[in-house]
């Protein structure tokens, strides 16, 4: 774990609490999936929490976030109420997207959280466009775009990086390199496995970061956001790992148990707890209190989702296009 420059106790505790919230929220999701309350695909962020928590802490509320189908972590770290995210997973109208999207499509316009994109690479041009709008409207905002290392094989990644660089747009591209795209290891998919090197090929600053170390992530994100704020894109390659299957189930024949155990030993939560305590920023009492608070927050989220209501089937064709004023023909 990196040294803790400028990290204070309250910030350390907040980072810990946010990661713990994601962890406990998703552990509950697994149970609820088993109970049939959550259906469809459910992609867990287990192991990768430091990335979303560290990066999003470096943002201001007016900045924008674009994420993938593996976005519970980003949603919670962005401050979407856990109850609304859980209600979305339940398909309830009180959910972040009114229940229409489910786990892969969490949106929150108020918080500039632009999903929830389940086409690999599909969010990347969107992020560049959001940044273009900010630039054209002279708003000082930055857009952060998360995607997996599998997405760098898509043309949209390359086309978007080029455009962002060519037009000097304020985007921070965050590649969550968890080593596997479903069952394909990076070196099975890529001739050049250094993602940061690809970005440099488009003439933008790029850094490789230890994505299991939330403090390192936060520091790198602050540098990146500063670059973007000045009007240039940059890329962070987060070296991280998903502890579980790609979605709820896969045979995981593509990696061995020992590898998973090696990465589990670097669990971002235990790592922060350990260094935090070593530096006198965290203590057992604070960690235990965080555990209690997070458990309560998750319990409340589930209760909120349970209480939620189902949209009546007569509403089926709502939200396809915006309502039109009655003077115009449909």
């Amino acid at each position: 774990m990196t040294a803790l420059p400028a990290l204070d106790g309250p910030t350390a505790l907040e980072l810990y609490r946010e990661m713990l919230l994601i962890r406990r929220f998703e552990e509950r999701c697994v149970e609820l999936y088993g109970a049939g309350k959550i259906r469809g695909f459910l992609h867990l962020y287990d192991g990768e929490e430091a990335v979303a928590v560290g990066v999003l802490r470096a943002l201001a509320h007016h900045d924008a976030v674009v994420a993938t189908y593996r976005e519970h972590g980003q949603a919670l770290a962005r401050g979407l109420p856990a109850g609304e995210v859980m209600a979305e997973l339940f398909g309830k109208r009180e959910g972040s997207s009114g229940g229409r999207g489910g786990s892969m499509h969490v949106f929150d316009a108020k918080r500039r959280f632009y999903g929830g994109n389940a086409i690999v690479g599909g969010g990347i041009p969107i992020a560049v466009g959001l940044a273009l709008a900010d630039k054209l409207l002279a708003r000082p905002n930055v857009t952060v775009c998360f995607f997996g290392e599998g997405a760098v094989a898509e043309g949209e990644f390359h086309e978007s990086l080029n455009l962002a660089s060519l037009w000097r747009l304020p985007v921070v591209f965050v590649c969550e390199n968890n080593l596997y795209a479903m069952g394909s290891a990076l070196d099975v998919d890529e001739a050049e496995t250094d993602v940061a090197a690809k970005a440099r090929g488009y003439r933008m600053a790029a850094e490789r970061v230890d994505g299991m170390d939330v403090v390192a992530v936060l520091a790198a994100a602050r540098r990146a956001v500063e670059i973007a704020r000045k009007g240039a894109p940059c890329l962070l390659e987060m070296r991280t790992y998903r502890f579980r299957a790609h979605s709820m189930f896969d045979s995981q024949g593509y990696r061995d148990k020992a590898e998973i155990e090696r990465w589990r030993a670097r669990d971002p939560l235990t790592a922060l707890a350990h260094t935090g305590k070593a530096h006198g920023l965290l203590d057992d009492a604070a960690l235990a209190a965080a555990e209690v608070a997070v458990q309560r927050e998750v319990d409340d989220a589930v209760a909120f989702a349970e209480r939620g209501t189902l949209e009546p089937p007569e509403h089926l064709t709502r939200h396809v296009t915006a309502p039109r004023d009655p003077g115009r023909r449909a």
Binding site: R39, G91, G102, H105, A118
Partner: peptide, 8 residues
């Protein structure tokens, strides 16, 4: 038919 939502 498998609750995979609008992009799947």
């Amino acid at each position: 038919g498998r609750q995979l939502a609008a992009q799947h």
